[in-house]
Structure formats: structure tokens, C-alpha cells
Amino acid sequence: MFRERRRVSTLPNYIILTLMAIFALAPILLLVSGSFKSTAEFTISPFALPEELLWSNYTTAWEQGNYATTIRNSTILTSFTVLFTVALAGLAAYALSRLNLKGGNIISFYFLIGTGVPAQLFIIPLFYIWKQLGLINSHAGLIIIYVALQAPFATYLLRSYMVALPQDFIDAARIDGASNVQVLREIIIPLSWPGFLTAALVVGLFTWNEFLFAITFLPSPDLKPIATSLYAFQQRFGRDWGLTNAGSVIMIVPVLILFLLLQRNFIEGLTQGGLKA
């Protein structure tokens, strides 16, 4: 009888949780539905389904929004940022977790403070320094910024994985005469690769979605990533909802696919960033 009562009492949970899920997901579904509509259909109702799937919104948005170029730009920015961030953060995390670095605590503390400095304090001087160095309108220039901004967080994340590795393996390798690099390559990286995957996903997501630095440091239309070119596109075709909706959906499709495949890693990485940053 007790069990029976408990089962009944979770029904309100499901009702409210479902309403909340609708609140989270319905707007996205309406956006997708609205990306297939003709201009005339928009005066009817956003809740009405499209009469037919107007794929031409996508082809037009693709061409007018210059997606062939912007997707390439975003891919360049994201892949190099992920690669360098994870590589450099991996080295730093290894040193901080495994090499008994003197002053390591100070560095960890510095990283903590460093991630707390608001972008608004340094973005203006940084812009003029980058201008002097010819790094405005340069993918490399923005990648350097992204790596610098995210490496401390990635270091922190990877460190938490490496600290948990068993010391015995490392000691055994050391006795066999393994160098720092060998220990890192043969033991640390293979054993903490879930950490590397998580860090790569979080860094990749941040870079793909990033807006403030992209719009400041890459003003040239040919170099813009999807985020800022989509912003310009939305302003140009403000009333053409089918087109701008389609352009927006293009941007989130790769993110949603990756997220649904690897949601455990995504959620773990992003919540750790929030919790421990």
C-alpha cells in the first residue's frame, strides 16, 4: 500500500516537469517550424505548422548569409582554439598535478583570479594592442585570445582528472627512467582522455557561440564566424523571418547533434565550469 501511495504522489512531479520541458523546448521547435514557412504564412500564427517544408529558405539563407565562408571561419577558429587550449592546458595541468611544482598553489590561485577578471576591464586596451600588432581581422589573433581566456579553466578541469590518477603507475615508469614527456604521453594522456574530451567540448562550444570578442576583433565580413555574421544577416533581413530563422537553425544543428550524442560530457564540463571557476 505504501508503494502504491508513492507512485500516485509522483504524478504532480511529472505534470510540472513536463510543463517546464515544454517551456524549454517549444520555442526551439517553433523556430524550426518557422524556418520552413513562406513570408505569407507568418501572418497566420507562429503555432501553425508550415503548409509545406520550404527548403528554399535554407538555400537562400546559405547563399545570402555566405555560410560556405562563415562555417569555414568558425571551423578554423573552433578547431585551432580547441587544439591549442587542450594541449597547453594539458601540459600545465600535468605540471600542477603531478610534478610537485614549487609555487604550484600560487599558480592555481592566479588562474582562479585570472578567470574572474571581467572582459570589460581589458578588452579596450587589448583591442588597441592587437591593432598595433596587426592582429585585428586575423583568425590567429582571435585564436590567441580564446586560448588565453579558456586555458585556465581547461587546466583546472584537467588537473582534477589527473590528480585522481594512481601514483603507482607513474612511480613505476619513473623507476624505469621515463622522462616528464614520456610519463605524460604514455600514462597521463591515455588515462585521463575523458577529461580531455570534456575540456575540448566545453572549449569548442564556447568558441563556436562566442560573440563579444568575435564582433570586436573580426569586423571584416569575409572573416566573421557564424555567430557575428548571423547577427549582421539578421539585421539586414530583419523582416524576412523565414530566412533569418533558417539561418539560425543552421548554426545550432551541429551543436545539438554533438550535445545529444555526448550530453554527459557536456553537462559535466559546463557545470564544473560554473561550480569551480
Binding site: A24, L25, P27, I28, L31, L205, W208, N209, F211, A227, T228, L230, Y231, Q234, S248, V249, M251, I252, V255, L256, F259, Q263, F266, I267, L270
Partner: peptide
């Protein structure tokens, strides 16, 4: 969690 991973522009 899905809205959290979608870009601000979208």
C-alpha cells in the same frame, strides 16, 4: 539543458 548550449545570437 538544451537552451543553455544554444548561442546567444540564435
Amino acid at each position: 539543458f538544451i537552451p543553455y548550449v544554444i548561442a546567444a545570437v540564435v
